[in-house]
């Protein structure tokens, strides 16, 4: 017997599952937004940035 989609547990936990889904979706959006912001900041000033470029490299 498979875990049928219409299992009674699904209806019982519907509200809870939707809220968790929204939270996870929000988390993905947050990580995406922070990534965009971090990558659009001047990387040459942040020595820890993965795409850090030294001033000498820039002049080359």
């Amino acid at each position: 017997m498979s875990f049928h989609p219409e299992h009674e547990l699904h209806t019982r936990r519907k509200g809870r599952n939707s809220a968790v889904g929204l939270l996870l979706g929000g988390f993905v959006v947050l990580v995406f937004a922070v990534s965009i912001v971090k990558l659009s900041q001047p990387q040459s000033e942040d020595t820890h940035a993965p795409n850090y470029v030294t001033p000498s490299q820039v002049s080359e």
């Binding site: 017997m1 498979s2 875990f3 547990l9 019982r12 936990r13 509200g15 809870r16 809220a19 968790v20």
Partner: peptide, 16 residues
């Protein structure tokens, strides 16, 4: 297995 899983608790914890 999952198939035989039954929850005997009366109250289902809500998101709140």
């Amino acid at each position: 297995t999952d198939a035989t899983y039954t929850d005997t608790r009366e109250y289902e914890a809500q998101f709140g």
